[in-house]
Computed example of a mutant assay.
Amino acid sequence: MVEHGAVSPEWKPLITLLETILGRVWEELEPWQPRCVAVTAGHAGASGPAVPVKLAALGAGASFIDAQLEHGGPVVDAMASGDPMSTDNVWAEPRWPALAQSLLAGQAPGRREVWASISGMAVAPSGWHHGGGAALSCCVPGPAAEPILEVLNRYEPLVAASLTVVHASTVDGADDSLRMLRSRAVIEQAKGAIVAASGCDAHSAWVRLRTASQNFNIKLRDIAVALIEHIGQAPAEQPAGLPFTRPDDVTRDVARRTWQEITGR
């Protein structure tokens, strides 16, 4: 059964979406005997960076996600850095001493046996809305094999899209929901182009776009549109009925330079 955390009553459609996603991730990870798969998210406000909260978790190890949000751990670090993370033994990692102490000090009555069965963990983070971050994670009794992170990376876009659409449709309105969908679509298109040109994986392509966005303080969506236009030497196709994203000269130059770095030409 999926355990739901800090999901707003306005986000009821998100419950069904997350249940479906977590169920499918669990099925694919069955060979590694997952103890928990979970979605955490946070949204930055005017007062500071995003504070992650658990939205939903499947499996007996769901409380282990809560422990990380309190004591630190791979989920928190991955969301803060935006980079995927995996560890073969979460308890032996010097980066999270308070997490190990929380188990040794008996701060998990009734959960100690489950927590002790957890060793490896993998986390796939992503951005999902203006200032928002999310992560799809899995903990397993053995090492966090590379295929585990590959599965999480494949489902991460679904998590991000679900959060984006539900938030936009319930908080910002239907028009913003359509804008978010359009943004996700063009970003995925740009990621696909980078993967095809460089042979990297989807997350590495995302990192390329995100790095360019952060280094030049340009919205990732705008860089993605400019990149598609540069590759195709024509304006990117955009749905009718919504304001177009029209990259300025600076954004076009950043996209051109980014593509040169990727392709070497």
Rank of each mutant, 00 (worst) to 15 (best):
M1A: 04
V2G: 08
V2S: 08
A6K: 12
S8K: 06
P13W: 14
T16E: 10
T16Y: 09
G23C: 04
L29T: 12
R35P: 04
P49M: 00
L55S: 04
G59V: 01
H71V: 08
G72T: 05
A78E: 04
M79W: 12
A80V: 14
W91V: 00
A92C: 03
A100F: 05
G106E: 02
Q107I: 02
G110Q: 10
G110I: 03
E113Y: 01
V114H: 00
W115N: 03
A122I: 03
W128T: 02
G132R: 01
C138P: 09
V140K: 00
P143F: 00
A144Q: 00
L149C: 06
E150H: 05
R154Y: 02
S162V: 10
L163V: 10
T164Y: 07
V165S: 14
V165G: 13
S169Y: 09
T170S: 15
D176K: 13
D176M: 15
S177T: 01
V195E: 09
C200A: 09
R210G: 05
D222E: 15
V225E: 12
Q233F: 05
Q233A: 15
Q233Y: 01
A236Y: 10
Q238C: 08
A240L: 13
G241D: 09
G241E: 05
G241C: 07
F244E: 11
V250M: 13
V250R: 15
R252L: 08
V254W: 12
T258M: 15
T263K: 04
T263Y: 04
R265V: 14
R265S: 11
